[in-house]
Design a protein around this nucleic acid. Sequence first.
DNA 1: CCTATTGCAAGAGCACCGCTCTCGTTTCTC
DNA 2: GAGAAACGAGAGCGGTGCTCTTGCAATAGG
Lengths: 232, 232
Amino acid sequence: MSDNRPSRAEARAHQIATIKSTSRRLMAERGAPGLSLREVAREMGLVSSAIYRYFPTRDDLLTALIVDAYNDLGVAAERAVQRCSKRDATGRLHAAAASIRKWAKRNPSEYALIYGSPVPGYEAPEFTIEPATRVTMVLANIITDAWRESPVEGPAREASLGAMLELSGMEEVMPGVPDVVRARGLMVWTQIFGFVSFELFGHYRGSVRNANKFFDFVVDEIAETVLPRSRD
Amino acid sequence: MSDNRPSRAEARAHQIATIKSTSRRLMAERGAPGLSLREVAREMGLVSSAIYRYFPTRDDLLTALIVDAYNDLGVAAERAVQRCSKRDATGRLHAAAASIRKWAKRNPSEYALIYGSPVPGYEAPEFTIEPATRVTMVLANIITDAWRESPVEGPAREASLGAMLELSGMEEVMPGVPDVVRARGLMVWTQIFGFVSFELFGHYRGSVRNANKFFDFVVDEIAETVLPRSRD
DNA sequence: CCTATTGCAAGAGCACCGCTCTCGTTTCTC
DNA sequence: GAGAAACGAGAGCGGTGCTCTTGCAATAGG
């Protein structure tokens, strides 16, 4: 009964988790480029070479943190939207946008890690793509659902602009949504993350005094461009 | 007449210029976080400690590169706009946006330096603010000029939304422009740089096939939100 | 013109970094 | 129980930012 010593596999999982959480903490202080494997080891009471048993290189550790960050942001957005009535598309968009912004402000170093300047020479592995699309899917689904609900006339149903834009992969992602709206959906996505990046990276300093109100305004404006007009 | 030996001041200016250009070259290869003073010195045939005669710290060198980058981007945008007829506001906006995007693609590492993740702990000195506002001013002036030219009815001249948004410093910057348009001006600014960042940092991979056409579409869309409707 | 001051490059050195390798020890697997 | 695999410790390599000292060259003042 006294065999509560963790097995090798358990110990390994625990070490990996500790390394990642310690890295997140240190990254919050000195930023991603300042993250040091030696410091992580020191913090854990380990010798530096021991870390390499779990992450063969610094980039591998960063990749793991990137995947975690994408997933973390993804679930935050998913949960925020799920708390909203499926009929209130504008409300869902506001909830999603607000959750993204909130997550970014709560985890600035991780946001910078995934949406800031990529490290030159660092090529994101294949398996980081799927977690990365998670937030994007949340936004895309809000728009798609809104158009499925009321497939009436929407804003500007001009010709086949989408084909001209040569968007790819969007056909399956946003079925039943006009091409223009699909393109505007990309703009919504860009606007939200552009806003968050500008706010977090300090580019609004001097021009935006109340970021909360401005953010609400922005989401209102972009919502009108991608959601079908409510019948009045 | 044989005194073409450079004076001390000349030599110093030349060394500073060489250090900066060498740094830019190396930064293009390994990125800003990978920029190494020792490597710069090595490349110049200098011993590493000599660099500190010109830049007392690595951050000071980075600051100099940041200021140069802001100014470089600023003049690029200014020149692009000047080549356009002042009456064609949409054309001017397209020119400005295109020049920003072009500069970013030509100088990706410098773009990442000023619009990517800021280094935690690094506080941008006061004198970097003015060069930073240069591009922004170009965009703001396009909108302001357009409204000065035809101060007729524009899009959505609702109440004093601007006061609610608590934008600051915008009163002097965009005189005669409705508050809503001022706020949308910030959105235009955000959208352009959000687009360029997303494109440069690889977030559009998988969803945008022809970025050129999509960019034109985006600029068309945002132009409509901030420029007074042309009389028809 | 000669001297005192200043600017400069060189070199050694400090503490840090990512990463590799070896060496005992512990744990798992057959 | 024996062999294999995983693990932590430690030394070591070449790199980093940065400091300090030393000797020389260019400038400035008398």
